[in-house]
C-alpha cells in the first residue's frame, strides 16, 4: 500500500511540484494519473521511488515512511518498485538480454553483477519475462536495433525481471503510435491482473485512461483535483481536470486498430 500524507514538494528553484497531496493507493490497483504536462504527474510518480524527494509530509510504502530513507534502504525500496519510462531508458549499445538482466541489479551483489555472474534462476527469469511480452526472439539484438514499441516491451521485461511489488510507468506510451500504445497498455494491464502488481501510470490521453484504469487521479498545478473509479469519469470530469475543453490531441485513438 502506498499512502501520501500531506505530501508537498518544492524544487530548489522555487517551483511547487506537489501541493498537499493526500492519496492512498491500494494493493493490486491499476491507477492512471491524468493531467496536462507540468501538472505534477511525473513528480508524483517519481516521489514513490524517491527519484525526487518531497520536501514535506510523509509518504508511506508498506507502512514505512520512505522520505527519510538513505542509500541502503533506498536501494531496497527501489528493488520493490519497478519503473517504466517514456523514452524506454534502455542502454542502447547493450543487447536486449543484458538490458533485461539489469532488472536484477538491486538483488545482486556489486561484484557478481560486474562479472556477469547471474544465477541460473535470474537468467531464466529474464528469459521468461521477455517471453511474456513476446520479444524473446530479439534476445541478442542490440537495444537500438529495435522499434520504439519493442524497446518499451523490453523495458517492461526489465521491470518484470525485477519482481517488483509496484510498477510505476511515467508516460509509457507518449512516444509511440496509437496501435503500439494500446499494445503496451494491454501488457501493463495484463501484468497487473496476473501478478497482482499495483500499477501507477501517467497518461495524458483521456481515452486510454478511461479504457485501462481501475481508478483515475486527476492533477492540476501540483494538486489532486479528482480521485475516483474510472467508471465514474466522463468527458466533463476531464474538462474540470484540464481546466479547458477537450481537444483532439487529448485523445490517442486507434483502439479498434490493435
Amino acid at each position: 500500500m502506498i499512502e501520501f500524507k500531506d505530501v508537498g514538494l518544492v524544487y530548489p528553484n522555487g517551483t511547487e511540484g506537489l501541493k498537499n497531496i493526500n492519496v492512498k493507493i491500494n494493493e493490486g490497483e491499476f491507477v492512471v494519473i491524468v493531467g496536462l504536462s507540468g501538472a505534477g504527474k511525473s513528480t508524483f510518480i517519481r516521489s514513490i521511488n524517491r527519484l525526487v524527494t518531497p520536501t514535506s509530509g510523509s509518504l508511506l510504502v508498506d507502512g514505512e515512511d520512505i522520505l527519510n530513507y538513505h542509500s541502503g534502504n533506498l536501494r531496497k525500496l527501489r528493488t520493490k518498485v519497478g519503473m517504466i519510462f517514456q523514452n524506454y531508458n534502455l542502454v542502447k549499445r547493450s543487447n536486449v538480454f543484458k538490458n533485461v538482466l539489469a532488472g536484477r541489479l538491486g538483488h545482486t551483489g556489486t561484484l557478481r553483477s560486474i562479472l556477469n555472474l547471474y544465477s541460473k534462476e535470474d537468467k531464466s527469469l529474464a528469459y521468461e519475462s521477455l517471453n511474456r511480452v513476446n520479444i524473446a526472439e530479439k534476445l541478442y539484438n542490440r537495444a537500438d536495433e529495435l522499434s520504439g514499441g519493442q524497446q518499451q516491451r523490453v523495458s517492461i521485461a526489465r521491470v518484470l525481471t525485477q519482481k517488483p511489488k509496484y510498477i510505476l510507468a511515467d508516460e509509457p506510451v507518449a512516444s509511440l503510435d496509437p496501435p503500439t500504445s494500446h499494445q503496451v497498455m494491454t501488457y501493463l494491464k495484463k501484468i497487473n491482473k496476473e501478478d497482482k502488481i499495483t500499477t501507477i501510470v501517467n497518461l495524458h490521453f483521456i481515452d486510454m485512461a478511461m479504457e485501462y484504469a481501475d481508478r483515475i487521479i486527476g492533477m492540476r498545478a501540483g494538486e489532486v483535483v479528482f480521485d475516483g473509479p474510472a467508471s465514474e469519469v466522463t468527458e466533463k470530469t476531464f474538462e474540470e481536470i484540464y481546466g479547458r475543453s477537450i481537444r483532439e490531441d487529448d485523445l490517442r485513438g486507434g483502439a479498434d486498430e490493435s
Binding site: L51, T79, F85, N89, V91, K98, L105, T108
Partner: peptide, 24 residues
C-alpha cells in the same frame, strides 16, 4: 536516461556506472 533507469531498479553507484555508463 539509462543511468536513471538503473538507479530506479535498485542499482548502486558501481552497478549504475558499469551497466549504463561504461557501454556508452
Amino acid at each position: 536516461n539509462p543511468l536513471e533507469a538503473m538507479r530506479a531498479s535498485g542499482g548502486n553507484v558501481f552497478q549504475v556506472i558499469w551497466y549504463a555508463l561504461v557501454p556508452q
